[in-house]
Design a protein around this nucleic acid. Sequence first.
DNA 1: ACCTGAACACCGTTCAAGT
DNA 2: ACCTGAACACCGTTCAAGT
Lengths: 201, 201
Amino acid sequence: MHTRRRYHHGDLRSALLTRAEETLREKGPAALSLRELARDLGVSHAAPSRHFKDKQALLDALALTGFDRLDEAFATRLEEAGDSFPERLAAAARAYVDFGTANSELLDLMYSIKHTPEASEDLLAASQRWTDRTVGLIAEGQRRGEVREGPLERVGVGVFSTLHGYATLAASGSLPSEVREQGLDELVAYMLRGCAPAKAD
Amino acid sequence: MHTRRRYHHGDLRSALLTRAEETLREKGPAALSLRELARDLGVSHAAPSRHFKDKQALLDALALTGFDRLDEAFATRLEEAGDSFPERLAAAARAYVDFGTANSELLDLMYSIKHTPEASEDLLAASQRWTDRTVGLIAEGQRRGEVREGPLERVGVGVFSTLHGYATLAASGSLPSEVREQGLDELVAYMLRGCAPAKAD
DNA sequence: ACCTGAACACCGTTCAAGT
DNA sequence: ACCTGAACACCGTTCAAGT
């Protein structure tokens, strides 16, 4: 007797996203095709359109899951981290860099998608939420007196740029190989000096 | 009598690149099609294959022109800049950021292209050449005693990450609007503190 | 509600043939 | 040397029709 499976296995939408990420990772963004996805999952080529109005809609949704997982990894690292600002900044850096190296094509998709003329509302929100989260970390440091005073948008932009740049460079393989993991502590020290209070001694 | 024009106007290859960059800028990377390019230029759809074996080959060539122009802008700014390290770092930052905001889709292409399974030799070289150039700037600072000692790959990575991150964030519109131009001086100061010699006073 | 099958306009790539 | 025209396999999207 026909059990709970709807047509193929119950949740085509998430199956499409999962498969899409696999081929993105394995064959690159240019190889991503709705029809091939449908074939891989054993449904007709028109089936995906019930769940994503567009190929772009699927890409947006995929990027969104990326931001969700980045947030999650970020939160997890922060929970595990110590209480001091340097430790928390290091945890954030590690979360970002690890995510970027483990999901380089996805990270690229997450940020390149803004260049498409019509960017999804949810995606812009997710991107903004992620920005706010890392800026929030700087605010923490400020309250503890480990980050110089001033408006957050100005004080935080350096650290945010460094984190983003390092993560994307690591993801695109543009970082000298001897740097990566060992370089992270040094990068954190660099950021700390950069945003340290004006004068202490 | 048939003048010097070969078939259409003499240099299809560069005409393709020029037109490709226009549509990249105006309609985004997804809208780039060899056949439409050919139509726009009034040649047959098969004509581009004489100059680019592949769509990917055209994209690679386009990214390459991007690196060339970035190098050029960088060199020009450095010539105009004063002699001091802070001034030269500021000039470099401005060159990078201006290029990124004026050519955001192209900058994205230049770096995302490494995620394609088969990356062109020339393109990797151009990317490396650009990295070397900015690291060279750090080496300058080191010789003048304005940058801390240590191996260049380790000392330079912070500044390089910050520059790259700021430029790509600016390009993707992820930077709070009030920051951009005014924020650059502050960013330079942040980088200078980050890579300053260990102790001075 | 969810999917199929056929149809349409488009695409990248190849290749014999033209000048 | 450089380009055309036809051909092939593929693609995204739409829509009537099926269950």
